[in-house]
Write a protein that binds this DNA or RNA. Structure first.
Lengths: 232, 232
DNA sequence: ATTAGTACTTATGTACTACATATAAAAATA
DNA sequence: TATTTTTATATGTAGTACATAAGTACTAAT
């Protein structure tokens, strides 16, 4: 029976395109334990022949994997396996305007959870210099500062906290979450004041305990949690 | 100086391919405020002509955006703007074998931070049924259970905690982090016992306070934090 | 013999053509 | 007007051709 005839009798069930399937097959292939970073993959022609698709389709799939940072392609040498940048692709889809309300809320919440969970790392990793940096950041805070100043101070302060953790992934992650945070806050422009200021938090970080810091941070973030209740 | 360090300081001069540049241009185009989900984009021919590249190159870039869930393409209708699945691409690159030690450590840490930050959400959202579910999960725990049992209990318990938060993004995120967690723990097969068991945590969640829960969780996770010190 | 330079080979990058396929939209039919 | 049929069109896939960069092998000069 000819292939064309067969294809007519048995139409493909999958709505997936060839590129989708090739992407999956390639990822399965790449994740095999035996393969390690730096290994060279077969050529595009070999792969496309093995998979039974045109070089075109194969390249569409490879293009995705290249974007993810799973592979790189060198002329003449071929494709080589690389370490993906785990947050790179995340960055590409973090578009507040494109997110539904639930997801926005979830990410907003995620940020609050992170912030509350930081205490332990902070108290393990903080140095005298870190405290000094924080004190410099909060020194010139005045309640009458306008919004733009307030936001940049907010970013500087919380950004520094993440920096103290020494966890680059965490820091980059929170930087990526900031626009989401901003977006949500802007859409609900209420300004509930907290009883705990950045200055208070620095003092606790310097002289207090983890437990006190968590309580302080919770109170500091309370306006945001309040906002969350309204979004629900 | 290590190669990875060198790579950070001296990133290779980017010799971006056409597909890379088209991807960037398209993302800029898609993120324009005027565009909203469901809007129909120009056809492939129109886009490729406007950008001055072959349809081939354009399709490689579109293939990436399709994978990210930024667009979908319908036959005859054309491409339509969609809401991306923000964690989908993350899932594709979370391959423990492919991650360097620093990243592994960072993600491991991230999970611990999340777990410690959960308390507030848990105490706001917990229901009587949730507590019952947790009690059922921990009921048959016996210290003499073998490893496989222990791991599945671990997953069930902590998974349920994330479920109580009612935050799907958070839950999916932690599910994706589990293999990383597993990978790190397996590679360092020490088994330090904690003084606080799942049963204790359930009791605190039922009758105690947020603050007590954080302290309890911290003690429960202490073996993992210890492990982290060794990785450093 | 070692080195420098050159030609060759090869795998990726890009462009173009052709046709299959599904389907929205238009036309024809009841 | 409602339903079916036809048509037009945008995406999906395949294949060919050539440009480009970069290993590889070969040659020549010191």
């Amino acid at each position: 029976m000819s292939t064309t005839k067969l294809n007519k009798d048995l139409a493909p069930i999958s709505v997936n395109t060839r590129a989708d399937m090739v992407e999956i097959r390639l990822r399965e292939y790449l994740n095999k334990k035996e393969l390690k970073t730096g290994d060279v993959l077969p050529t595009e022609m070999e792969l496309s022949e093995a998979l039974g698709v045109s070089r075109n389709v194969l390249r569409e799939a490879l293009s995705r994997l290249r974007m993810l940072g799973l592979v790189e392609s060198k002329k003449k040498r071929g494709m080589v396996l690389t370490n993906p940048d785990i947050l790179g692709s995340f960055e590409r889809v973090l578009i507040p305007q494109r997110m539904d309300n639930d997801t926005l809320k979830n990410l907003f919440e995620l940020r609050l959870v992170l912030e509350l969970g930081l205490a332990d790392l902070l108290f393990v990793r903080k140095t005298a210099k870190d405290i000094k940096d924080l004190e410099a950041i909060v020194k010139n805070n005045k309640p009458e500062d306008d919004d733009i100043f307030r936001v940049s101070r907010e970013i500087a302060f919380h950004g520094k906290l993440y920096e103290i953790t020494g966890n680059d992934t965490l820091k980059r992650f929170q930087i990526m979450l900031l626009p989401v945070f901003d977006y949500v806050v802007k859409n609900e422009n209420r300004s509930v004041k907290s009883n705990i200021t950045h200055t208070d938090l620095v003092r606790i970080l310097k002289e207090g305990t983890k437990e006190e810091f968590v309580v302080g941070m919770r109170e500091h973030l309370r306006p945001h949690f309040e906002l969350l209740k309204n979004l629900r």
